[in-house]
Design a protein around this nucleic acid. Structure first.
Lengths: 128, 128
DNA sequence: TCAGTATTTAAGGACTTGCTTAAATAAATT
DNA sequence: AATTTATTTAAGCAAGTCCTTAAATACTGA
C-alpha cells in the first residue's frame, strides 16, 4: 500500500504567482509569433536545408539538379526539402523550359539572411 | 519490357561545373559551422523550447517547476526539454536546496539573443 | 528517520522526419 | 509519335521527437 503519492507537479508554497501570471500573459500575447518563428527555425534547423538556403542566397538561384550535385544527394531527397521550404513560402520558383529555378522568396530574404548571419557570431563571453 | 530507365539523377549537359565545384568546396570548408548552427536552430525550432529560452532570457533564471506552471505542461515534459538544452550547453544550472535554477549559458547568450531578436524582423520587401 | 517536495529518469506509444526506390508528370529533342 | 531529361509524387521504412505515466533520486524539515 502506498504511503504517499508520487507527484507529477510541484505544489510549492513560495512560487511567485505574480511572476507566473505575468509570464503567462506575455507568452499568450506572443503565441502566434512563437509558432511562426519556431516553424522557420525548425526548417532552418536541418543541415541539408540550411545549406540549401545558404546556397540559394549565395548563388541567387539554383535548380534541384544543381543542388543535388552540390550536396551529393539524390534528386528526390533534395526535391522534398525544397517542397517544405516552398510550402512555408521561404523559397519560390521560376520555370524555364524543363528546369525549375529556386530562390529565396523576397519576403523571407531578411529573416534568412539574419539566420545565416548567426554563422559569424563568435561564441564569446560578451555580456550585454 | 521497359523502353528506358527512370532516372534518379540529372545527366544534363549544361551544368556549370565550375559553379558546382566552387559551391562544394565552400560548403566543405564550412561543414562544421553548418552542423553546429543547424543543431542550435533545431533546438530553438520547437515552440516549447523557444518559449523556455525566451523566459530564461527575460526572467534571468527559473526552476523547472516555474516553467511547468507558466507553460501549463507537466514537469517531466519540461525537464526533458531542459535536458536537451543543457546537453547542448545552451543553458546551465545552479542548485539551491532542492530547487534547480536554469539560466542561459553565458557562452550562448549572444546567439540566443540573436535568435529571439528575429521576432522583431518585419516580413518586409526590403532588398539588400 | 520518515514523509514531503523538487527534480530526473525510464518505458511506452503516437506521430513525424528524412531517406530510399519506383513511378508519374511535363517539357524538349529527334 | 517516341525518347530523353528534369522534376515531383508516392509508398515504405528506420530512426527520431515529444508527450504520458510510473518510478527513482535527492534534499528538507518535523
Amino acid at each position: 500500500m502506498l504511503k504517499y503519492k508520487y507527484m507529477n507537479t510541484c505544489i510549492r508554497v513560495f512560487a511567485d504567482s505574480d511572476q507566473i501570471n505575468r509570464c503567462r500573459e506575455d507568452l499568450k500575447s506572443k503565441e502566434e509569433d512563437f509558432l511562426e518563428l519556431a516553424d522557420v527555425l525548425n526548417l532552418a534547423g536541418n543541415a541539408v536545408r540550411l545549406k540549401i538556403l545558404y546556397l540559394l542566397k549565395q548563388e541567387n538561384e539554383l535548380c534541384p539538379c544543381d543542388i543535388s550535385d552540390i550536396l551529393c544527394m539524390t534528386v528526390p531527397a533534395v526535391s522534398q526539402h525544397l517542397k517544405k521550404l516552398k510550402d512555408a513560402r521561404i523559397v519560390t520558383t521560376k520555370k524555364s523550359g524543363q528546369t525549375i529555378f529556386y530562390s529565396v522568396e523576397a519576403q523571407s530574404q531578411r529573416i534568412i539572411s539574419s539566420v545565416l548571419d548567426l554563422f559569424n557570431l563568435p561564441n564569446s563571453n560578451t555580456t550585454f
